[in-house]
C-alpha cells in the first residue's frame, strides 16, 4: 500500500525534517508511526498525502507514484490531519457533502454514503450541527468521516486522539479497529502516545529526528520485557514521555526512571518544537494547523497534558513493563 525509499524533506532555512525514510506498509495493516513531537511524523504524512513535495526519495502510495500521479494518489486515500479540518460555523453535513462531491460522487449517493458512515461512527443526527457545537470526541469522529466518505483503501490519521479525554480516545480506537474490518482499510497513523501505538497498531515504525530508528510489532519491539518507552530510550537515549511532568510523583515505572536522562531529555525533545518550530512558523505557513492549533479543542500546546493520568485509565496493561 505504501512503499517509500529515501523519502526526505528539508525546509528552507536548513531544517531537515525528514531524512531518508524507507517504509513498507501492506494492505490491511494498521501501521503506527511513533515518535516525539517534532520527529517529522506530520511532515512525512503530508508528503505521502501529496500536500508537500519531497525534497528527496520516491514513493508509491495506494498503487500510484507519488510524484508522477498525485491526483491518482488523492483519489485513493483519505487523510485526517492533526488539527482536523472543519469550518466551525457550517453544518458538518454540508461540508461532508461538498467533500464527497469533490471525489466525484453525485449528491444522492453522497448523502446515502454519509448517512451510512455517520451511523457507523455513532454520529447520526448530528449532521445539521456546526462543528463548533460538537464535543471534542464527536468532532474527531467527524474528521474521521471526512477521511472515509469516499471509501478510500488507505487512510492516513495524524495524531488521531491528541487532545481527547480517555473515554473518547478509547472510543476512537475501537472505531478505527472496527472500520478496518468493515471497510477493508489500510491505516497509517502517527502518534506520540505509547499506549495508542500499543493499542492500535499491528506494526510500528519508530521515528526520531526525521529518521526511522526501529521497526516491528509492538511485541517484537518490547521484546517481551520492556515497555515501548524503554525501547525508545535504549535506541535514542531519550524517553518518549517528554510530556510527563517532571514531578511525576505517582510514576508507576520502576527503577530506571530515576536514572534515565529524563530531565535533560525533556529539554531535548521539548525544544524540537519551540526552537526550530519557531523558525517554521516565521515564514508563514497558514495552512498548517501546527502543534499549537491542535490545542484549539481546549487543551494545552500539543495536547500533551492528559497523558499521565489517562495512561492508567485506558491502557493499564501496557504500562506494566
Amino acid at each position: 500500500m505504501i512503499r517509500t525509499s529515501g523519502l526526505s524533506k528539508s525546509f528552507p532555512g536548513g531544517v531537515n525534517a525528514v531524512r531518508g525514510v524507507d517504509l513498507a506498509v501492506e494492505a490491511g495493516e494498521i501501521v503506527g508511526f511513533l515518535g516525539p513531537n517534532g520527529a517529522g511524523k506530520t511532515t512525512t504524512m503530508r508528503m505521502l498525502t501529496t500536500l508537500l513535495r519531497p525534497t528527496g526519495g520516491v514513493a508509491t502510495v495506494a498503487g500510484r507514484d507519488l510524484l508522477a500521479d498525485p491526483r491518482g494518489v488523492r483519489r485513493r486515500i483519505g487523510y485526517v490531519s492533526q488539527g482536523g479540518g472543519t469550518n466551525p460555523a457550517t453544518p458538518v453535513g454540508d461540508e461532508l457533502e461538498l467533500h464527497a462531491m469533490l471525489y466525484g460522487m453525485r449528491r444522492g449517493p453522497a448523502r446515502e454514503r454519509i448517512g451510512e458512515i455517520l451511523e457507523r461512527l455513532d454520529l447520526s443526527g448530528l449532521e445539521s450541527r456546526p462543528a463548533g457545537a460538537l464535543s471534542g470526541g464527536q468532532r474527531r469522529r467527524f474528521d474521521l468521516a471526512f477521511g472515509l466518505v469516499h471509501g478510500p483503501s488507505l487512510l492516513f490519521l495524524d495524531e488521531p486522539t491528541t487532545g481527547l479525554d480517555p473515554q473518547s480516545r478509547a472510543n476512537l480506537w475501537a472505531h478505527v479497529t472496527r472500520l478496518r474490518e468493515e471497510e477493508g482499510l489500510t491505516v497509517f497513523l502517527t502518534t506520540h502516545y505509547l499506549e495508542e501505538a500499543d493499542a492500535l497498531a499491528d506494526r510500528l515504525f519508530v521515528i526520531d529526528h526525521g529518521a526511522i530508528v526501529a521497526e516491528g510489532t509492538p511485541a517484537e519491539l518490547k521484546g517481551g520485557t520492556g515497555t515501548l518507552d524503554d525501547v525508545f530510550l535504549s535506541i535514542t537515549g531519550r524517553s518518549l514521555r517528554e510530556d510527563r511532568p517532571s514531578a511525576a510523583p505517582g510514576s508507576s515505572r520502576p527503577g530506571p526512571d530515576g536514572v534515565e536522562p529524563s530531565h535533560q531529555e525533556s529539554d531535548g525533545v521539548g525544544s524540537g518544537r519551540p526552537g526550530p518550530g519557531g523558525v517554521g512558523s516565521g515564514d508563514g505557513e497558514p495552512s498548517r494547523p501546527g502543534p499549537g492549533g491542535v490545542g484549539s479543542a481546549g487543551s494545552g500546546p500539543g495536547g500533551v497534558g492528559p497523558a499521565v493520568p489517562e495512561r492508567s485509565a485506558v491502557a493499564p496493561a501496557c504500562e506494566e513493563r
Binding site: T49, T50, L51, R71, R74, R75, I77, Y79, S81, G83, G84, G85, T86, N87, P88, E95, H99, L102, Y103, G104, F146, P286, S287, R288, P289, G293
Partner: peptide, 19 residues
C-alpha cells in the same frame, strides 16, 4: 481563505482529487 487555512478546511480540500 485565511480563515479556512487556519481551520484546516483548505488542507482538507487540497487532499481531494479536485484541481
Amino acid at each position: 481563505v485565511v480563515f479556512d487555512a487556519r481551520s484546516g478546511v483548505l488542507e482538507r480540500l487540497r487532499v481531494t482529487p479536485a484541481r
